[in-house]
Amino acid sequence: MQWQEVVNKAVDLRQWFHRHPELTWQEKNTAAKIRQCLTDWQVEWRACATYGTVATLGKEKQGEHIALRADMDALPIQEQTSLDFQSEVDGKMHACGHDGHMAALLGTILWLKLNEVQLKHPVSFLFQPAEEGGHGAKHMIDEGALDGIDFIYGWHNWPAMPFGTAVCPNGAVMSGNGSFHIQVSGLGGHASQPEVCQDPVLAAAAITLNLQQIVSRKMPPQAAVVLSVTHLNAESSVTVIPQTAEVSGGIRLSDPKYRPQINQLITEIAQQTAAAYGVTAQVEIRPRYEATINHPQAAQNYRQVLAEVFGQNCDQVDLMLPIMASEDFSYYLQQIPGAFALLGMSDQTNASFSYACHSPHYQFNDQLIERVMRVFINLAIKY
């Protein structure tokens, strides 16, 4: 099988994955497709974290053992692209490019299997479920996906960068995140008698405003922190002051050291503001992922290969790092050395590739598949 045949096979697989999206912790058919490919290609694999798969080539070889990772899950989004191979599942869509991530990794495996003699050390391939908030990486680690692995590499397409660009910094490349959920409880009653009520709506509005001081007045200007209130709910009729109101939202932070302070401030501000309005606030903070922080040596290895494939100036791009999106690849980097790269996807000749991840109009740029295959193959052979 020639190179272009392998690339075409990978593109076909991408389109199959795109037609058959499955949500977080529901990737049963996706896993079956991946495992059937590996079996057909006579690649050794084992199940991990239910729908995850760990495949290995060159297992008998000596030297440092690297791992390459792809995520698998889709999103609960109704696709609006009109692609010939658009989602066949109502309300579900690969709107973040995980279909392309899987396809590029499968193409890499097939080529390396056909040329396994070139491998000087073992290489593993992690197909990971539940990246979209499901902590799939943690489950993979808990079930031994990193056992014997010395370095790990991953990537994500990024529509805000032009095709042909790539960034892989030392240190943080993506931010950590978390969510807060505040229930404000008061005393409801008739809207004509506010004096005999304890209004949770007014308190919730004040809490929303007061939370904004955390970033603007409590964090150093150099800290990359975002706090957004994204949900307010105080369901009632127009003549009723309700008993409760809910305030919730998300936080993003590039350095884990700020998380305890931010969490404490959210709780203090919500409860003290509530007290000032004669109501109470119960606060729940749910940590999600920590920042994705690259290890310098692994990042240097990655940058060298990226420059070989994308060009020496591929990292010359107008992008402020770390980006504020989050990735559970951070779990891997907390355990072993590794690095994560962002690869540009937008194309001036096709505006469709510029839609942001998680948009119903999002489209993955299939030109990336061959490029990523070359990067991964070079990493596997050289490092």
Rank of each mutant, 00 (worst) to 15 (best):
1 M>R: 13
2 Q>P: 12
5 E>S: 14
7 V>C: 02
13 L>P: 01
14 R>L: 01
14 R>I: 03
21 P>N: 09
23 L>E: 03
25 W>N: 15
28 K>M: 09
29 N>I: 06
37 C>S: 13
39 T>V: 11
53 T>H: 12
56 T>H: 01
61 K>F: 02
64 E>D: 10
67 A>P: 06
68 L>E: 03
70 A>C: 12
70 A>P: 11
76 P>R: 04
77 I>G: 09
79 E>Q: 12
84 D>I: 01
88 E>C: 09
88 E>K: 15
92 K>L: 01
93 M>I: 07
98 H>G: 00
101 H>A: 10
104 A>Q: 09
104 A>Y: 05
106 L>R: 02
108 T>G: 04
108 T>S: 00
109 I>W: 02
111 W>Q: 01
115 N>D: 01
116 E>M: 07
125 F>E: 05
125 F>W: 10
128 Q>M: 05
132 E>K: 05
134 G>S: 07
138 K>V: 07
156 H>S: 03
156 H>K: 02
159 P>E: 15
160 A>N: 13
161 M>K: 10
163 F>E: 12
165 T>L: 11
169 P>M: 12
175 S>V: 07
186 G>H: 11
192 S>D: 15
196 V>W: 02
205 A>T: 04
208 T>Q: 10
210 N>G: 03
211 L>M: 03
216 S>R: 06
220 P>S: 01
224 A>S: 15
230 T>Y: 04
232 L>M: 11
232 L>Q: 07
232 L>Y: 05
243 Q>V: 02
244 T>S: 13
263 N>L: 05
265 L>D: 15
265 L>H: 13
269 I>G: 00
270 A>H: 02
272 Q>N: 12
275 A>P: 03
275 A>I: 09
276 A>W: 04
296 P>Q: 10
298 A>W: 09
303 R>K: 06
310 F>M: 11
313 N>H: 06
317 V>I: 10
320 M>S: 14
322 P>T: 07
324 M>S: 10
331 Y>N: 05
332 Y>G: 14
335 Q>N: 11
339 A>S: 14
340 F>C: 06
341 A>V: 00
342 L>G: 00
344 G>R: 04
352 S>K: 12
352 S>Q: 14
353 F>R: 01
353 F>G: 13
357 C>E: 14
357 C>I: 15
358 H>T: 13
359 S>Y: 12
363 Q>G: 01
365 N>F: 04
370 E>P: 07
373 M>R: 05
377 I>F: 08
380 A>T: 02
